[in-house]
Amino acid sequence: MNVVCCDLVPTMTQVPSWDKVLKLLKKTQYLYGPGLSQLRENVRKMWLDRMVTKAESSFLIDVPADPLEYYPQLLALRNEHIPFSIAHVCSRTADLSSQSEHLKPLWNFGPETCFTFLHFCPQASVNTTYDQLVNVRFSWWKQLSYNSSDFTLSNMEENSAVLSGRRIQYKFPWGLETVETICNLGDEHLKKLQQKTKSNCQYSQGKKCIYPSQIQCDMTLEMATALFLKDAYVEKSVKGNEVKQVLHLSPVLAPFKVAVCRQGERHEEISEVTTYIASMLRKHGHQILDTCHTKNHLNMQLNRFDEMGVPFTVIVSDSTIETGTVQIRNRDTGIQETLAIGDLPLYVTKHVTYQAAS
């Protein structure tokens, strides 16, 4: 494998105003287009992957009802043993009055998608479990972000409904916004549920029947999407006073994993190869952006894909026809590597697969 560094190392500048971020999103057809839709879907997949697929005894509920109502039947399914969790995804009418004016362009005044995670554990271990869950959620946000230093944790005020709570907050240009809450709710909700439904809400511990403690995490897909877009936006000084805009989206969140560039004179043969490469990568489950015929210079194509947050660009040229190799460029480093066409699926899969923090 040959490695070539083709870009000058850019100079980072301060993140500009939110208006510049929105302007770029409009320019790249993110707003109300396939970019925003696929980004939302990828955020949803990453939440489900961490809180359902990779979580022990976690059950997904995606109906509008209160997820706590499903606790008795899941407790029965578990033969009255804990711990276990309920992951809930649903849409609800957004309370626009409580949202920042800056974020409303991304909401499009429609319903918001809520992610709720309910975890039920013994009261004796609730404090340890609560701390662990706070760390899991905080790590999830930071792993998927470009600038993890903009996240902070703050305490919520204790009250009759919340025994203890933490807010995960993110520093937007206009100030801190809460992106997720994690609360220790104790056992009061389960006691009320048992009184209301007459269903058993207690788990077995030897000969005793005990109410577990409930820990709850809440976030919305819309806030997460806005956060990751703002977080990814960077301006880079490249030559003189020229400024380049880049969306440093995490590869697992990026709407398109790979873009295909064309460079050379053997247009018909290059077109056949790019079509083959795009089809091959799609068969391996990757979203590919093939802009088909373009007369734009290679650098203009690369700049466009950087603005769209595409992590990798495959460059098909005249030499590809002779050697069966392509150049694959990393958005974040500007480094180009020479790969055999057949090695592309494994390379891309390796670099866009999410690895959860231990």
Rank of each mutant, 00 (worst) to 15 (best):
V243E: 04
K244H: 14
T181H: 06
H189P: 03
E242S: 14
E235F: 10
D187R: 11
V260T: 04
C261F: 02
K198N: 14
K236E: 13
K230E: 12
K230A: 11
G186A: 06
L193I: 01
L221H: 06
G206E: 00
T178E: 07
P251R: 00
V234A: 13
L190V: 07
G206F: 00
T225I: 12
F256T: 07
A226N: 05
A259T: 08
F256I: 00
K236R: 08
L227Q: 14
E235P: 03
C209N: 12
C217K: 01
L221T: 03
A254D: 05
N241I: 06
P255I: 12
S199A: 13
V238D: 06
D231F: 12
V252C: 14
Q205D: 10
C217Y: 09
N200V: 11
N200F: 06
V260N: 00
M223Q: 04
Q195H: 12
E180K: 06
C261K: 00
V252L: 04
K239T: 11
V179R: 04
K207F: 07
I182T: 12
Q214C: 14
K208D: 10
L253E: 04
V234S: 13
E235D: 11
K236M: 05
S213F: 07
D187S: 15
V258T: 01
F256L: 02
H248A: 11
Q194V: 03
H248F: 15
A232S: 15
S199C: 14
E242H: 14
K192W: 05
G206I: 00
Q194Y: 00
L190Y: 09
Y233H: 14
S237Y: 08
K244I: 09
K198S: 15
P212F: 01
E188P: 02
K208I: 06
Q194T: 05
K257C: 08
I182W: 07
E188K: 13
C261N: 06
C217H: 01
